[in-house]
Design a protein around this nucleic acid. Structure first.
Lengths: 241, 241
DNA sequence: TAAATAGTGTCTGTAAGACAGTATACT
DNA sequence: AGTATACTGTCTTACAGACACTATTTA
């Protein structure tokens, strides 16, 4: 079923195209990475052969809400079922899609690298991870370069005062591993002592046993108390400078 | 003109309804207030006679972007041309509008009470300001209660660490007036000394002459250096407690 | 002068930054 | 023992909270 039979008079004016796009982040090999999808080259769709954010049209029969739509696309591309997923905002206008007035609802997701297996999908689309700086320098399809930059800015901004990077790690994780993740996302070193005090005083983790087996002194591992939201710290990092 | 003739094959699947809604805030009479519009009672549209946020369908011929659409609706209702306007997020799903799958792009705006004249609009719609708590207890049309609560939460959250309340005042304004605005939005008193240090150290205002004429010692008045964005403070208020 | 409002100074508390030091594993 | 990694302690600095104090106007 599609439109009318709601009991209300039909709405006849033209409607915009509606899409959902997702900026999926992970930390892999000491770099913040983002998932991109290559648009098919031999097609009559716009931007053939260009890299783009994963996403697509809302399916009003399949997707109950925008969030459901985002979760579905995320699952299809990475197999991840319960990521950290947050809305970034929406972009809409007459010019951003050559097929007509369109509005996209953009989400961003944080995914532990280990938890994930890439899936090409039914149409064998090419899918790959790129370091965000390299991805940002590419000419992405549509206005996806702008969406990506906004997502990176939002992530970096929130990392200054939240526990978001914990969602980029498999549980349980150690404090040194978490600190490394912060440093990769922020692109700078943070002081170990201040970092540990902040994380432990935050009270958002619980101990999950010692981790041995590697070189050096064993580390305590931790688990998040609440995987549904990030903890907020009372100040940003580097407030001094 | 409406859809095809883009050179791309037509997209035939059904499209959601697309709207823009705006939460307009002002401070009036020691209270944070929000603008609501009464939906016509004798009509075949949904939620007749209910109060709702100002907004409506995107007009793909008139509105170049979502932001333009929001600015147009704001101008139509209040006459304000250059408010503080920020996107709150988007809400979409099959159930929120009985006429079909719909997605709304929600913005919030900060408006100085003095700068504004209410306009009923062409269809003589009833328009009024309500204290946010009272508005939140009403049964608003659609999911507008949810949108309103999200906007209030976002505003209160950002006021803890930004200069946002300055956009609720006509320029120039005095520090006592600004402090009063903070207290109204936050719903609690803030310390005068700490408040003044924070604002003056922020460096986002410039002096605009002494204001005399009322009872008591005259106050220095200030103007914003940059009306396009709010200043960020290094900590939130009340970090101690 | 009194009342009202604007503005300052001083002390304390919290948490971050810097950085040196200690602890516990493996080879 | 030596090295690598995990973790702690101590000193300083930035800034908010509390609250008492001074300053400048009008009635």
């Amino acid at each position: 079923m599609s439109t009318p039979s709601s009991g209300f008079p039909p709405l006849t004016f033209p409607r915009p195209l509606v899409t959902v796009d997702i900026v999926m982040f992970t930390v892999l090999g000491d770099a913040l990475q983002v998932l991109l999808v290559k648009r098919p080259a031999d097609t009559d769709e716009p931007f053939p052969g260009k890299w783009a954010l994963p996403g697509g049209f809302v399916n009003i029969d399949e997707d109950a809400t925008l969030l459901d739509c985002a979760l579905r696309k995320l699952r299809e591309k990475t197999g991840v079922v319960t990521p950290y997923l947050e809305q970034l905002g929406s972009w809409g206008g007459a010019q951003r899609d050559p097929r007509g007035w369109s509005a996209t609802h953009c989400f961003y997701a944080l995914i532990p690298a280990q938890a994930m297996q890439l899936r090409s999908g039914a149409n064998a689309t090419e899918v790959a991870w790129f370091e965000v700086d390299a991805a940002s320098r590419k000419r992405l399809a549509f206005d996806h370069g702008e969406l990506l930059d906004a997502a990176v800015a939002r992530l970096r901004g929130k990392v200054e005062y939240t526990s978001l990077p914990a969602f980029l790690l498999e549980e349980p994780f150690t404090l040194p591993a978490l600190q490394h993740t912060y440093e990769v996302v922020l692109g700078r070193a943070v002081d170990k002592s201040a970092f540990r005090k902040r994380m432990l005083d935050g009270g958002f983790m619980e101990e999950a046993g010692m981790v041995t087996g590697s070189l050096g002194r064993p580390a305590m591992s931790y688990r998040l108390r609440d995987r549904s939201q990030a903890a907020l710290f009372p100040r940003t990092f580097n407030a001094t400078k």
